[in-house]
Amino acid sequence: MEAEIRDVRIERYYPDVLINSKEFSVLSKAVDPELANVWKALWKQFLNTFIYLLDKGGATRWESMLNLHPAVTDSLDTRRKVILAKINSSLPYTHRSFQLTLNGIYGENNVKVSLQYNKYECWLDITASLLYRSSAIKNLASVVIPANLSILVSNTKYVVFEIYSGLSMRMFKHIYIHPGVTFNIQNGSKIACFYSLTIKKMRHIKIRSR
């Protein structure tokens, strides 16, 4: 919303008989600047009723009413977003709507919400650049997230690197001897048993990492 500029001139409201009067002309020159200041102050108060049009004074007033305590390093835009989030932190909230709120305040996917329903945990994965604001983010989440969920903060980093490992190999030879039994029937009456041995060689390889 652009600021409305009004040319304040009190002489427009003078009766025709007073327009050319020197006394009233001097009076208008003295009063017009004061009325212009009054108009600017009223317009400023009007703009401060809109969150995204707040100036520093308006932001301080809202923060006082909402019991917010901004950091010294917070920009005016950041303060506006925190105020808006506080106003909009009314239940019920969904996972998706809360994620959209965080995206609007802290940037797209700078704070990711994940829920572990079986453990009753809500994880807020925060980028490294916003870790200093983790307390403020948790305070915002505590207003929105149900009280039976624990609010936990994490910071995930994806790193690509190579891992080197050494291997040692040992070879063992095991020899197993199993008896082989054969039966041979001759002439239908005599039974001869012949025993022989078979040798089976097996190799077992064990690989162990160091």
Rank of each mutant, 00 (worst) to 15 (best):
140 L>F: 12
141 A>H: 01
83 I>N: 02
52 Y>I: 08
56 K>F: 08
157 K>Y: 02
60 T>E: 12
118 N>S: 15
198 T>I: 13
203 R>G: 04
160 V>M: 10
191 I>L: 07
66 L>G: 08
56 K>Q: 12
200 K>T: 10
40 K>Q: 12
91 L>R: 11
108 E>T: 15
87 I>Q: 08
46 F>I: 15
91 L>F: 07
34 E>C: 09
114 S>M: 15
44 K>R: 06
18 L>G: 03
53 L>M: 11
131 L>E: 08
151 I>K: 06
82 V>R: 09
29 K>G: 13
1 M>G: 14
152 L>I: 12
149 L>D: 09
123 W>M: 10
32 D>F: 05
148 N>S: 09
15 P>N: 05
92 P>E: 02
155 N>K: 06
159 V>W: 09
134 S>W: 02
61 R>S: 09
179 P>Q: 06
141 A>K: 00
205 I>W: 08
52 Y>W: 12
154 S>W: 06
155 N>L: 05
177 I>G: 02
209 S>A: 13
98 F>E: 07
10 I>T: 08
93 Y>L: 09
12 R>P: 01
154 S>Y: 09
40 K>A: 12
25 S>T: 15
39 W>L: 08
60 T>A: 15
75 S>D: 03
31 V>H: 01
119 K>F: 11
160 V>H: 10
133 R>M: 07
191 I>A: 03
128 A>Q: 11
120 Y>H: 13
62 W>D: 01
89 S>F: 02
141 A>T: 01
189 S>M: 02
201 K>P: 04
161 F>P: 00
124 L>E: 05
6 R>E: 10
30 A>G: 08
130 L>Q: 03
23 E>G: 00
91 L>A: 10
147 A>Y: 04
63 E>C: 09
29 K>V: 05
207 I>A: 12
95 H>E: 14
107 G>V: 02
153 V>F: 02
108 E>N: 14
188 G>A: 02
113 V>E: 13
50 F>R: 06
148 N>H: 15
139 N>W: 03
23 E>A: 13
193 C>Y: 11
28 S>Y: 02
91 L>M: 03
69 H>E: 14
148 N>P: 03
186 Q>V: 11
38 V>I: 15
55 D>C: 01
209 S>W: 10
153 V>T: 10
144 V>T: 07
142 S>G: 03
103 N>K: 04
68 L>I: 13
1 M>W: 08
104 G>Q: 04
140 L>C: 01
65 M>Y: 15
168 S>T: 15
144 V>I: 14
121 E>P: 07
207 I>G: 04
160 V>W: 09
42 L>E: 06
112 K>I: 14
189 S>F: 00
86 K>I: 01
208 R>E: 15
54 L>G: 00
35 L>T: 03
183 F>H: 05
88 N>D: 13
141 A>G: 04
14 Y>Q: 00
199 I>G: 07
134 S>C: 01
7 D>R: 12
132 Y>S: 14
9 R>L: 07
138 K>Q: 10
124 L>V: 08
68 L>V: 07
59 A>S: 10
122 C>S: 11
178 H>E: 12
63 E>F: 10
126 I>T: 00
54 L>R: 01
116 Q>I: 14
49 T>H: 15
126 I>H: 02
68 L>K: 03
95 H>Y: 13
122 C>K: 05
97 S>K: 11
76 L>C: 02
33 P>T: 06
197 L>K: 11
13 Y>D: 00
126 I>W: 01
178 H>T: 07
192 A>T: 12
131 L>S: 05
